[in-house]
Design a protein around this nucleic acid. Structure first.
Length: 195
DNA sequence: GGTAGGATGGGCT
DNA sequence: GCCCATCCTACCC
């Protein structure tokens, strides 16, 4: 990962929507595995009924209310784990769900951990898939992603990239602003592709 | 190409 | 006791 550097805490110290959009195209790294983030979703605070933080500060959601640049990992459906990155200033809730990555490094390891994936496009094209592929678990709850084994990197010179905003997956609230961000045209996103 | 149903455990009312 | 920010398999066009 030459030509890139770890994103500083200030990157995350902004509103969740801006951080979610900004994370598309960045490189998520865990140990020997890495991938380009191609799909994210922003989750806001109290007014956002889809967000875990809207139910208030609990043992599980505590990290979402804390300082930015930390991992919020939670168990879903008793089986899968989802990785979020905490945004917003300390004391203000908000986070970004990482929904899909394009595998870049450590692909053999990813394949071992994801035997059900037959094509490379299916290795990490979903929030539960990418945590399996990368080996991210609830052990990473609260981990500082500005240092350590789980980080996000940005290329020194980033190619221009087109980002599409859509409704978040699984929520049909019509008044919801589009808070899902995908790299337009990527084959590695979850669900329907954009053209 | 498509969708229905089950797996499975923790968080919260 | 109910509800999930999901994924895979089986089965059906």
């Amino acid at each position: 990962m030459r030509q890139s550097r770890v994103l500083a805490r200030s990157f995350y110290d902004r509103d969740s929507e801006t951080v979610a959009r900004g994370l598309v195209g960045k490189i998520l790294v865990h140990e020997r595995t890495a991938g380009r983030i191609v799909e994210t979703e922003a989750y806001l605070g109290m007014g956002d009924l889809a967000a875990h933080a809207s139910h208030g500060l609990t043992a599980r959601t505590r990290v979402i209310f804390g300082p930015p640049g930390h991992a919020y990992v939670y168990l879903i459906y008793g089986i899968y784990e989802c990785l979020n990155l905490v945004a917003e200033p300390d004391g203000t809730p908000g986070c970004v769900l990482i929904r899909a990555i394009e595998p870049l490094a450590g692909i053999e390891g990813m394949r071992r951990r994801r035997p059900a994936a037959r094509r490379i496009e299916d290795l990490a094209s979903g929030p539960g898939k990418l945590t399996l592929a990368l080996g991210v678990t609830r052990r990473h709850y609260g981990a500082d992603v500005t240092r350590g084994s789980l980080t996000v990197r940005g290329l020194k010179s980033e190619p221009a990239l087109e980002i599409a905003a859509t409704a978040r997956i699984g929520f049909t609230d019509p008044v919801d602003r589009p808070l899902r961000f995908v790299e337009r045209g990527s084959r590695f996103v979850s669900g329907p592709r954009t053209s």
